[in-house]
Design a protein around this nucleic acid. Sequence first.
DNA 1: CCAAAAGTGTTTCACTTACACCCATGA
DNA 2: TCATGGGTGTAAGTGAAACACTTTTGG
Lengths: 230, 230
Amino acid sequence: MSHSYEYPRPALTVDVVVFGVDENDLKVLLIQRGLPPYEGSWALPGGFVQENESVEDAALRELREETGVARAPLEQYQVFSDPERDPRGWVVSVAFLALVRLSSHRVQAATDARDAAWFPTSDMPSLAFDHESIVSLARERLRERVQRRPVGFDLLPKKFTLTQLQRMYEKVLERALDKRNFRKKVLSMDILIELDEVQKDVAHRAARLYSFDRTRYREAERRGLVFGLG
Amino acid sequence: MSHSYEYPRPALTVDVVVFGVDENDLKVLLIQRGLPPYEGSWALPGGFVQENESVEDAALRELREETGVARAPLEQYQVFSDPERDPRGWVVSVAFLALVRLSSHRVQAATDARDAAWFPTSDMPSLAFDHESIVSLARERLRERVQRRPVGFDLLPKKFTLTQLQRMYEKVLERALDKRNFRKKVLSMDILIELDEVQKDVAHRAARLYSFDRTRYREAERRGLVFGLG
DNA sequence: CCAAAAGTGTTTCACTTACACCCATGA
DNA sequence: TCATGGGTGTAAGTGAAACACTTTTGG
């Protein structure tokens, strides 16, 4: 390693794949570009990293600026650095995935973006740059992640039914799960709080609500629990 | 995202944590810096990414230049971007891990390096920059990786005994494994070729040699095998 | 009373774990 | 002949998977 100023430097960006789920779909938040290149195309939210911040800070900042999402668990998962990936020249991007409660956020187009909207993963427009590969790798990572870490709860409302939890897993994993086995397993981990509350406004028997208890999760983990679901 | 030339740019480097095992230890390849900052300190091999290459290319190139290792499976695992991490200023680094057959490589100090040597992970010097965190995260990743993907074979000679395989796992995972269960499991996957050859020059019964067959592994995977060991 | 989803246990099977002795070889 | 690691099988236990009916509620 020599003196850094001797070397040409890339532009450094972050791209964030923001996932949410509703009753029907796993969705990704996209923005429509307001500037060239790819003006008018849909793309991932993201932008340039600044000198006084880490890439994590930059991803959070862009998330706030472009989508109004104030805080979300973020995870860095891959650097995209093919020299040809950006027509403007040498632009290296760090990809993140973020999980949000779809219900709690109203999206808002911001700087540089003409529009912002949620798209079901099953029906997405074609994307600018190499953003399609970035999204498809993100889905892969999310699938792995959700099975081994209790991150799926970040996609649900704070209070949820076991059926909502199961549906979320089924959408992320893209396969059906057995109801009884699923419930048995989740409950046996002892990481949920059973609330004295049930669903409202449903045209059938109201389901019990639960919430994820991170403290209990950490305790269970110390006692030897290995989280695994799906 | 706006025009990239409007933005300040970081220097971009790669750092490679090269792992090897011998009969005694899990080891990491380090170089002793020949230039400031941290002149004389031990550090990870690595260097600046060039404009016409991806970070993967850069990692491979640095590996070749600094250690003589021509090809090794490389995996990107984290970006380190704390603005304070490098006293020279804004230097963002992409960390890789690489697995090599210790026996097949003679290390050689190269450009910018005063010396290069293998250190047991249990007895490493203190390192330049944030390289200690980079190494400790790499060990974590290696542990996860080796249990879920057949990458450990890259640390062994092409022909190995089941005991060597087990010892390698034990060093990486830092725990003892049961001999009979380990053998049963590995062999049941049907991904090894049992050679008509045995160990040479040992002062006891010579063990049978095996080799890993990637083609068979891929077939087994298509048939539904989920690799898991340890 | 009907539609819709909530809620609940048992059996089977596969896999993991624990465990100890004889064998082959070279010194 | 001894020291050193090589090589082997079984039984018990644990966790995963398959599977269907009754209950509650609102409309």
